[in-house]
Deep mutational scan, measured.
Amino acid sequence: MAAGGDHGSPDSYRSPLASRYASPEMCFVFSDRYKFRTWRQLWLWLAEAEQTLGLPITDEQIQEMKSNLENIDFKMAAEEEKRLRHDVMAHVHTFGHCCPKAAGIIHLGATSCYVGDNTDLIILRNALDLLLPKLARVISRLADFAKERASLPTLGFTHFQPAQLTTVGKRCCLWIQDLCMDLQNLKRVRDDLRFRGVKGTTGTQASFLQLFEGDDHKVEQLDKMVTEKAGFKRAFIITGQTYTRKVDIEVLSVLASLGASVHKICTDIRLLANLKEMEEPFEKQQIGSSAMPYKRNPMRSERCCSLARHLMTLVMDPLQTASVQWFERTLDDSANRRICLAEAFLTADTILNTLQNISEGLVVYPKVIERRIRQELPFMATENIIMAMVKAGGSRQDCHEKIRVLSQQAASVVKQEGGDNDLIERIQVDAYFSPIHSQLDHLLDPSSFTGRASQQVQRFLEEEVYPLLKPYESVMKVKAELCL
């Protein structure tokens, strides 16, 4: 049975990233139509530049190519590739079939990587351009969430054990800070992308030097003109047959890092959902379990974690691919890159769409948070109580021993009897502590235990987050809708 299948058929496997999760716009960027249309555009740009620099290419040939950029006979191309065992030459023939007058000058002087690699770089750039505003929107939604809850005390956790208090907004800023680093890295790697350009079979530009009869300047002009037509500021000066596969490492490393950030955020949300302090959106008709109707599973956060793990592992592909590119190139890269580049971007696209949807509907339960604080705060307040007693004339050592005994009794009630923490009640009825009984409410005010959390939130948002989001103001209103 021949390899390949009808990918629109229910009898043929289709990647869930495309069929179930990723956005239509990201799927289109990695589609065959987008790819092969870009090949034709690159052939047109090459012909236009070659004509401008004096090669015998007519206006009629150029116009014929322009008129057929979208006229792609995919069936013919597939048949040609089956016959020739070469995808680029299959599309040269297919393009030439609908451009008979231009057929002889299509791909003039070029090698397969002229269309293959340059198209990949265009796709990487455009895919990054799709991700950047999506990530900015996630940051914006979380920034709104953090600002609104900047002063809401909550129990902090280290080692997932109760620690000092923080605020809900401050905790959210930990998430935002990681995503801001990801946004900066995505922008950097996007701006650092260079075009492969017009380089020939081993990167020496020998074929173009021959076409222009040894004119170095025209060869350099050709490279520059096509690079500018493709919208790049610069091209690699040095290439082998391909652009260095280190570029793929750079791009997928940034995406993998984004995956790590999203995994951490969504894990926190899942843990908070278990504590009943916070939940992701839950639709009115949504079913959490087929057997347990009360369940409210954090399905979206779980999906993000599941896909983020996949995204983090994909960076190993370009690392290994770059390491086995012998001399000017081997074909070890080809099949692998067809999979890992598309999957990385479709996965990143999915987790950003999902995280935006989550961040637009996060639900906080202040009463649950308050109750958990009441359970733990008495123990945390013991040092403040000791200091207040010393100020009232008591002995630190005597007070410490009193607190120690009462704390152990209260802990026994919590752990052995399943009761509430009654340390404060014990202190309130103990005559030894009568000098500070009137101060206990103040000493137990949760806001006095959150330090500068709310001020940190305000400063972080104003100095770091809002300036970073400013270039994306025009796209901030787009909502994230999930079908599944």
Score class of each variant (00 low, 15 high):
R459E: 12
I105R: 12
P162N: 06
S67V: 14
L142F: 12
I105W: 03
D191R: 08
D332I: 00
P378W: 01
E383Y: 05
A110L: 05
G394D: 07
I249A: 12
M312H: 05
A431V: 12
Y13V: 15
D317P: 07
F95Q: 06
M312L: 12
P298K: 00
Q241L: 02
F282G: 13
T52P: 07
K147V: 10
L142R: 02
P153A: 09
F282P: 00
N353E: 15
E250C: 12
L377Q: 00
M299T: 09
I106W: 00
K276Q: 05
M225S: 11
Y243G: 13
E283L: 12
K284P: 08
H97G: 10
Q221R: 13
C305E: 01
I62D: 01
A453I: 04
I238W: 01
V457C: 09
Y34G: 09
K295R: 00
L311D: 01
A322L: 15
V189I: 12
S454A: 13
G116D: 15
L46N: 08
G96Y: 05
R337M: 03
K284R: 13
S334R: 04
E417M: 12
L135T: 14
I351S: 06
Y13T: 15
K402C: 01
L44K: 06
I386A: 06
Q416D: 15
S407M: 00
E302F: 08
L482D: 09
D420S: 06
G203N: 01
K82V: 15
L331T: 02
A143F: 08
I369E: 04
T204K: 00
S334A: 06
G116F: 02
E64R: 08
S31W: 02
M387E: 00
P366N: 10
G214W: 12
R194W: 08
T382C: 10
S454W: 10
E360L: 07
A381W: 04
S395G: 12
E80R: 12
V457P: 04
G54V: 01
H442Y: 12
P10L: 15
F30Q: 09
Q397P: 05
Q416H: 11
G393F: 07
S301F: 02
K276N: 06
G288W: 03
D333W: 01
I237G: 08
L443G: 04
A235V: 15
A102R: 00
L307A: 15
V88Y: 00
N71G: 11
P281V: 10
L46E: 05
L444D: 02
E328N: 01
H86A: 01
K147S: 12
L307I: 09
F433H: 06
S323L: 03
W326Y: 11
Q397N: 11
L443T: 04
A322I: 14
I424F: 10
Q161S: 02
S261L: 02
A235H: 12
T94A: 15
F36E: 10
R300C: 15
F145S: 08
S261W: 02
E220R: 10
H91N: 13
L193C: 11
I358Y: 05
A18H: 12
L482T: 15
S207W: 05
D191Q: 08
Q161W: 00
L484D: 05
D144A: 15
N353R: 15
Q61K: 07
P24S: 13
D349K: 04
T58M: 12
P133V: 15
Q221M: 15
T167N: 03
A143E: 03
Q164G: 02
E328V: 02
L186Y: 05
V226H: 03
F282Q: 08
D120M: 07
G361Q: 11
R14A: 14
S23H: 10
N185W: 09
Q375F: 11
Y432F: 15
I436E: 04
D441L: 13
R396W: 02
T167E: 03
M299K: 02
S454R: 13
F36D: 13
P100L: 08
L155T: 01
A206V: 07
I265D: 01
L469A: 09
A77S: 14
E220P: 01
G203I: 00
D144S: 15
I339G: 05
Y34E: 06
L121W: 00
A102S: 13
S289V: 01
F157Q: 01
S306T: 01
V465W: 04
Q205L: 06
R234E: 12
C266L: 13
I238L: 06
D332H: 01
T158I: 00
K134F: 07
K367Q: 12
R303G: 02
V226Q: 02
Q177W: 08
N384Q: 12
I427S: 05
N68H: 11
W45S: 11
L377R: 02
N274S: 13
C340T: 10
C483Y: 07
I238H: 07
Y114G: 03
C99M: 05
S359D: 14
R125D: 06
S253D: 05
R404H: 06
S395L: 07
R245W: 01
I287G: 01
T201Y: 00
D317T: 07
I369L: 10
P133S: 15
L311Q: 08
C172F: 04
V465D: 02
Q286F: 00
E343H: 12
S207M: 05
R329M: 01
R37P: 00
V457K: 05
M89T: 02
K101V: 12
D223L: 05
E360G: 10
K477T: 13
S207R: 02
R338V: 01
